[in-house]
């Protein structure tokens, strides 16, 4: 895999720009290829995979770079999603434009990151893991119950009719025809999300090679030694929490506007665990590995959904096992097998 990558980016005979042009064109036509070969649902799945990739890159800052195990990361995604939902839906009658909400969501999620980080600075390893897990549950329970005495989140029902992104008065969820091609909502969102993901990747790469990034790695490897080297571990750890959380917040906002509906059910513990699996399975600390892991884990369950029922019918004559649980069994098996075969992830950092 990395050889292929080198061929495009590092090979001497192929100039770098050939690779870039090739990848750009591939990314631009991807949704149309996907729609033509597998149908529109798969464009939506692709969109969700892009959102998850942003989320996983945010978690990668906390877990992969700074080595702080976070089991409640989905809370920041929830904060971002609800910020968007409250500021652009009939819930409070507010309809702010997207360019105002994105920075607000970024800041609010960042504040929640610090809120989680501050009391847990002294905790190490698995103690931190359980506190973050508790934090994630606390946020979800509040979202689930803040419909009384004052109705803020609409409780378990969730918030509906969230505004989509509107650029120059054009709503992205409607279908448009440009140059004879039909752009559905899923297509338009694909480009917005792709842009955001690339921006996230850019920020992550710059962060990784910065003074701050090196400080994170130093803390991950040995906190005491890092402190002895003059790193202000408190501030650096808080920054890791805050930045990871802000990325999650933006991803959450995108999720809310793309889906048009949020409810606490989307932010259960299993989702946090899923995002963590994406990071670790892909290769913790390696940006490209994390993206690979995300796409595999976001797409695999959907493939298994399509496969687990029909295959039984074709091979065994009728559906013997509940396809839904068979799908999850295979998913669990895949997690175990990948980790057994490649303990440092599919595409680890070298």
């Amino acid at each position: 895999m990395s050889k292929l990558f080198l061929m495009f980016f590092g090979g001497r005979k192929n100039p770098v720009w050939v690779g870039y042009v090739f990848i750009t064109v591939a990314l631009i036509i991807l949704p149309f290829l996907v729609e033509a070969s597998m149908g529109r649902t798969w464009v939506r799945i692709l969109d969700f995979a892009l959102i998850y990739a942003m989320l996983a890159l945010g978690l990668n800052i906390v877990v992969g770079f700074a080595g702080l195990l976070d089991l409640g990361y989905i809370a920041f995604y929830a904060v971002g999603a609800y910020t968007w939902a409250l500021l652009a839906s009939p819930q409070f009658g507010l309809h702010l434009p997207f360019w105002a909400i994105i920075p607000i969501g970024f800041v609010v999620a960042g504040i929640f990151g610090v809120l989680l980080g501050a009391p847990t600075l002294r905790l190490r390893g698995d103690y931190l893991a359980i506190v973050t897990l508790g934090f994630g549950e606390i946020v979800r329970i509040f979202l689930n119950n803040l419909d009384h005495p004052i109705n803020i989140t609409n409780g378990p029902v969730g918030i509906n009719l969230i505004d989509p992104i509107q650029i120059a008065g054009v709503s992205l969820t409607k279908s448009h025809e440009i140059l004879g091609l039909e752009f559905s909502g899923a297509h338009s969102y694909y480009y917005v999300l792709l842009f955001l993901l690339l921006a996230t990747v850019f920020v992550c790469i710059r962060l990784e090679n910065s003074r701050l990034g090196r400080a994170w790695v130093a803390i991950r490897e040995d906190e005491t030694a890092a402190q002895a080297m003059g790193i202000n571990t408190r501030n650096v750890k808080l920054l890791a929490f805050a930045m990871g959380a802000s990325f999650g917040g933006i991803a959450g906002g995108m999720f809310a506007s793309f889906q048009g509906f949020v409810s606490p059910e989307s932010f259960i513990l299993l989702e946090s665990i899923m995002v963590l699996c994406m990071v670790v399975l892909g290769g913790m600390g390696n940006i490209w590995g994390v993206i690979l892991g995300t796409f595999l884990l976001a797409i695999l369950p959907e493939v298994l959904r399509d496969v687990s029922g029909p295959i039984q019918e074709n091979v065994l004559g009728r559906v013997w096992l509940d396809p839904e649980s068979l799908r999850m069994v295979l998913f669990g098996l895949a997690l175990i097998l990948v980790m057994l075969l490649r303990p440092s992830g599919l595409w680890p950092k070298r």
Binding site: V329, G332, L333, M339, L340
Partner: peptide, 27 residues
């Protein structure tokens, strides 16, 4: 098999096991 692997690898297999057992139990 993962006793000397990176710290988070057995955590992921543990999660995989949990998903696996829960769904086999449901079957």
């Amino acid at each position: 098999p993962l006793r000397n692997a990176p710290r988070l690898a057995p955590l992921i297999t543990a999660i995989g096991m949990s998903i696996l057992l829960q769904n086999i139990a449901m079957m």
